[in-house]
């Protein structure tokens, strides 16, 4: 007879995971964004990545940043995840401003401002401010994409844009191999820790040396893996030329599961129109130029800077 036992403790309700780990971060398991075709989402990525190039007004780029954040929230992205980008976001700002303070350039039209013991110039500093928000707006376009698209979505989008199979395959395998490389790295580190290595107690110089030494086994594993994967590809009938059996066209089973719907076309066309309109009004009329910035105008008035 089989003995059974009960603990008397009620099991906690199972936690339903909200995010799925990808090789590039996390994406929500369910998101309203997923109703759009992967190619639409890729075009959205390009749209948000490129449109700030035409916009010099920090106010508009700041607004674009909030639009991105709004889409992320609507798309159920865990906003806390964005904290990992904070160091980069702050140090970009630091770098951009330090460069214009140290190397403002020489221009008689620049207005000097004394800030404590140092003299800064208004125009390059405001230029750096505007450039910073352009950059951040573009970066958030990228963050939005990687926070809401799995590797599979990227591949489907690339194949939908008729990229050769080998190109999308290389991109997919690259992303996956990045994950494998990290996994190998973790395994090597754990093996060292299991043997009593305490990296926290090490001096920075020794830590750097140690990290460098990890690269030797990591590269060796990559070499072996290249052999294994190429063998697996051969065994599955993959050829360098991409020729498929029967000499016909490759059926793309995964891509065939996705269909472009009306909402996709509406969004793609809308983004296209906004993009073209923005480019035209900026290139012909300079509507988004820095001199039209309300903040710039206000500061100039405040500081008594002419023009």
């Amino acid at each position: 007879m089989i003995a059974t036992a009960t603990t008397g403790v009620n099991a906690a309700p199972a936690r339903v995971p909200k995010a799925r780990k990808t090789l590039l971060g996390h994406v929500p398991i369910e998101s309203p964004l997923y109703q759009f075709h992967p190619v639409t989402r890729l075009i959205m990525f390009i749209f948000f990545g490129v449109i700030p190039l035409f916009i010099y007004l920090p106010e508009v780029n700041f607004l674009l940043l909030w639009v991105n954040m709004g889409i992320m929230r609507w798309g159920r992205v865990n906003i806390n995840e964005l904290r990992k980008y904070m160091p980069v976001i702050f140090t970009v700002a630091f770098f951009m401003f330090i460069v214009v303070v140290l190397a403002p350039g020489e221009d008689p039209s620049y207005t000097p401002l004394d800030v404590g013991p140092i003299t800064i110039y208004y125009q390059p500093v405001f230029f750096a401010f505007a450039a910073y928000w352009r950059l951040i707006a573009m970066l958030f376009g990228t963050i939005l994409y990687f926070s809401t698209n799995r590797e599979r979505d990227m591949l489907v989008a690339m194949r939908s844009l008729r990229l050769p199979f080998i190109a999308s395959y290389v991109v997919g395998l690259s992303i996956r191999s990045a994950g494998m490389f990290l996994e190998d790295f973790r395994t090597i580190r754990e093996a060292e820790q299991a043997r009593g290595l305490d990296t926290k107690a090490m001096r920075l110089r020794d830590q750097v040396k140690l990290y460098m030494m990890y690269l030797v086994p990591l590269f060796s594993i990559a070499l072996r893996r290249a052999d294994e994967i190429s063998n697996a590809l051969f065994a599955r009938g993959y050829t360098l030329t991409g020729r498929v059996g029967g000499g016909g066209k490759r059926a793309d089973y995964i891509r065939a599961q996705y269909k472009l719907r009306t909402r996709d076309w509406v969004l793609i066309v809308s983004m296209g129109l906004i993009f073209v309109a923005t480019a035209i009004v900026q290139m012909r009329f300079g509507v988004f130029s820095i001199e039209y910035s309300p903040l710039n105008i206000y500061l100039k008035q405040l500081l008594g800077i002419p023009g």
Binding site: P87, Y169, L173, S177, G179, I229, S230, Y238
Partner: peptide, 24 residues
């Protein structure tokens, strides 16, 4: 051969890790 395509992908992957973490 295929091994070169695979190596291209693996090296790109290594570059992604080293490049990303170098910057972070």
């Amino acid at each position: 051969g295929i091994v070169h395509v695979v190596m291209l992908a693996l090296f790109t992957g290594i570059g992604i890790v080293v490049g990303t973490f170098g910057s972070l």
